[in-house]
Design a binder for these strands. Structure first.
Lengths: 243, 243
DNA sequence: ATTATCTATAGATCTATAGATAATGC
DNA sequence: ATTATCTATAGATCTATAGATAATGC
């Protein structure tokens, strides 16, 4: 529960932890709707308080500043996303269609969370940079789940042998093509139903992951990046620091 | 020159059109840097005026309001993008490698315009909705260039026969995977050089567009939508309006 | 005279807190 | 007595404009 863990890190004047969690959720639930509709900056703390049905004074007992609210909102969204994606991976019943099913379930999560995902794209930049980093880590963790799926399928032979960097990029691609439904929705939803979108994208992604073996030349990469292994874990040959 | 066309639509008190264009560019150039660094809402009109080296009073002779500045900035970015993408398509020397070259050139444009593209993703929502729509149209126009490329290659036999909806989705995918370099740069640039990224993504995209023929089942779609071919072209069974 | 630019500020917010009040538990 | 909540507002902005000044062209 990353959201819970973080709860502790936002300071509060209120002693009762259960109350703190309840009120914070109440506030966050009200805030996220306003952020989605009007954006973070055009939403005032008073509006949030009113929508959450508490006074502005009380609000500030539970959050130190407006940005704290946005951060908790982001944490809750990512927590929900991660739950959904993890479930998607269980639903997938293995076998030849495993990847197709994972994609389908993942895209349905994106569809369901559409407004929230879009909000994260738009508002993350309004967070203090320290929290921006945490939100991005969440994003990466979710991508990691997809990396896991692809790696498993590749090693079990249900996908061609893919080198690690290819797997990583493909996972990012799948994640982002799911997000695309949220941030190009103004166009896509006019012309496609979600089921159409999933069908077309599943076909495209499967091709992207499963073309004939000659399409995946032996790993050209590992130029063994000479020693330094930092927290950033260049766990393979390839990764390279760029300022 | 969409930017120029629009120039006319932003009202101004100043008579000399040449001066208007010069000053507006001067202001927009200063503003975009601030928007990239601090976001639209955290940037004040005074900061913009100072950075553009004019007084706050003068600034408001050239723009009716702060949002106008953001809009002009967006127009200029998209105009530059479109120019770059159009060039990318000329560079591509036809033949078997044509698509790979287009992708490469397009991705290099994304790399060069990285900060600007990201800014559009983050700040479009701050525009009045009428101008939001125009920015999204620009986005669609650029995607349309890619649709054109794919359609040409598919009909000339350099790509398999793809039905229209598949082409459309593939074009969106290419556009968005270029953008991905900008909005996941915080991760990607730590582990990949742009050349690595282009190489991996080109391979993935080519697979996505060119898998064996059995991967593109005969157009399930064309239930011959009774002649009518509109701009929105629900040319097949599927598309459907969603509020 | 007309056009462009500047300074100074009105007017309208908005965040965050101080200090008063109500509710709870001993 | 302690904890939670509220009202009222200090203090700090920020956008956009009014009215004064400088520059330009006839």
């Amino acid at each position: 529960m990353p959201a819970k863990i973080h709860q502790a890190t936002i300071p509060t004047q209120v002693k009762d932890p259960g109350l703190v969690e309840r009120r914070r959720r109440q506030i966050a639930d009200a805030a996220v709707q306003l952020f989605i509709r009007n954006g973070f900056h055009k939403t005032t703390t008073r509006q949030i308080a009113r929508a959450a049905d508490i006074s502005i004074g009380s609000l500030y007992e539970y959050f130190h500043c407006k940005e704290d609210i946005l951060y908790l909102v982001c944490e809750q969204i990512h927590s929900e996303m991660e739950k959904g994606v993890a479930q998607a991976m269980n639903h997938a019943s293995g076998g030849k269609e495993a990847l197709a099913e994972v994609i389908r379930e993942y895209f349905l999560v994106c569809h369901r969370m559409s407004d929230f995902i879009l909000m994260i794209y738009q508002q993350t930049q309004s967070l203090p940079s320290q929290w921006q980093r945490r939100v991005l880590e969440n994003e990466l963790r979710i991508t990691g789940l997809l990396v896991g799926v692809l790696a498993r399928l590749a090693s079990s032979g249900e996908l061609p042998r893919l080198n690690e960097r290819t797997i990583e990029i493909l996972a990012h691609n799948i994640v982002v093509l799911g997000h695309m439904w949220t941030f190009r929705r103004w166009f896509l939803a006019k012309h496609y139903r979600i089921e159409d979108y999933i069908r077309l994208q599943t076909a495209a992604i499967l091709r992207m992951c499963t073309a004939g073996p000659e399409e995946f030349p032996a790993p050209i990469d590992p130029p063994a990046a000479g020693g330094g292994s930092d927290a950033d874990s260049p766990s393979e040959g390839g990764p390279r620091e760029v300022s």
